[in-house]
Amino acid sequence: MKTKWALFVVHFLIAFVLIGCDKIAVLDPKGPQAQTQANVIWLSIGIMSVIVVVVCAILVFVLVKYRDSKLPKDYEPPYIEGNRVVETIIVIVPILIVAFFSVVTIITNNKVEATPQAYKGQDPLIVYASSSNWKWHFSYPEENIETVNYLYIPTNRPLEFKLYSFGPITSFWIPQLGGQKYAMSDMVTTLHLAADEAGEMMGRNANFSGVGFAENSFYVEAMSQDDFDDWVTEVKETAEPLTEEKFQQLLKPGHLGQLTFTGTHLPFSPAPEGEHAGHNHGKDGPKADTNGNQEHDVHEHDTSTS
């Protein structure tokens, strides 16, 4: 009875996911990477359901057939050491499944870690997305603008997010565009995304980062390249420039609304990559890596010759 119940729950769960898949963010992809991931998820749910059903079926069969109350009084269970054939099957079948999944995982890993196939060859939009307690700063170095807590992106163009953090480890996640990746203080990670269609989306920090974590989300809007260009022009005409002083204020712990600036923080507070990477940071860390660079270079030279 319990197993039937368990089966019911499983079916209920699958049915519900099927019905509600339009609304479930991860299964409602708006970009090629999220599409790849949703495909993997569906594929694995499918194969895994079969395994669950098989296990439950055997369990129900055994429980129905060999329960104490159903058996003759004099039935004495035999001693069974094992069975080579059966044991081979229960080894081989999982191995085949795992082998299949291994191939899938290698292919898809390489897909999500590269520029999406459909947009290969295009010039990607590079966005430096950095987190501070508890905000997101988006720097568009080519456009030379910066936003806080909202992200405008062009559709049908590869996006390359350079992620790092001014504080604890955070995780940059836009479920409908693709999976997340960590932003850390001592190195830059790269996340390849792209949007197939225009629309509004939710993005957030997925990795716990302290008191303000729950509200550490941002607004994402995908728009056509023309609209995006218009927006950039408009920002350049209207927004204030981002000064170092202003940026230091922004970094203070707390929440901010959506802000827009011309210029980025990258010139005076560069991302931890190349010569600014973690192991070269001095006392001030990534916050203001302005002094002592010369010394760092010397050390880097020393260590790299070893």
């Binding site: 192991h279 006392k283 020393d302 260590t303």
Partner: peptide, 11 residues
Amino acid sequence: VNRTSDGPIGA
């Protein structure tokens, strides 16, 4: 070992 920051290296 290579994360020496402003400090000295082993040698």
